[in-house]
Design a protein around this nucleic acid. Structure first.
Lengths: 104, 104
DNA sequence: TTGACATGCAACCATTTGGTTGCTTATTAT
DNA sequence: ATAATAAGCAACCAAATGGTTGCATGTCAA
């Protein structure tokens, strides 16, 4: 879980996920196109995404195809974000109450 | 959005959010209790959470009360995670197809 | 009013991070 | 066979990160 959050913390990596979401199964070089970064930098980002299981890569001859794995993202939503949805209104209400109380 | 992701990337900060989710409106010292960290370290984490609008703090006399703001978390769920839910099955299907094709 | 308590500020430090360059290896196409 | 293409490896670097210590400030209570 921690690895997923860490992987998602970087905008370049999120944009790589976006790209794969747009078109799945791209090669490293394809994923580099148009980015203001060297290929090696992208390689590192992809390694982190793979480590977090957000991307699965399979070699096909001399090229490596990258596939988005949406499961960890889904789990963040289910196991983490949902927790904070419950009691969201309660929290906001309490916050509002306190903010108003400030001027007493 | 980027600030929120960055703020959520650290386990200590997520645990602070958890604590506030458990009991809202805690002081800095309360939030420090039981943590293997100095007060100043917690202060820095809280500053980052405030910067990302995940926590709102109000001074009440000599103490500072911290309130969880669940809105950015909710937005991550809505604006970001949801995007990847759509086409999730399609992506997994494509991945499976490619993994099978590997053995050809 | 003076001491205790809650927080703030700043300098410092080690490690991690995001990036680079240069070179190597493996596969494909001519 | 050989050149071009796709990716991998390793060393290096600057800046950001997560933490510390030491001291200052503001507020409450005796």
């Amino acid at each position: 879980m921690d690895e997923v959050f860490k992987a998602l913390a970087d905008a370049s990596r999120r944009s790589l996920l976006d790209r794969l979401h747009g078109r799945n199964g791209q090669t490293l070089n394809e994923l580099c196109e148009g980015l203001a970064m060297t290929r090696q930098a992208v390689t590192k980002h992809l390694a982190i995404l793979e480590e977090a299981n957000l991307v699965t890569a399979i070699r096909h001859g001399r090229e490596k195809l990258h596939y988005l794995n949406p499961v960890p993202i889904h789990q963040i939503g289910e196991r983490w974000i949902r927790k904070f949805e419950r009691g969201k209104l309660a929290a906001l209400g309490e916050l509002k109450r306190q903010l108003e109380k400030r001027d007493e």
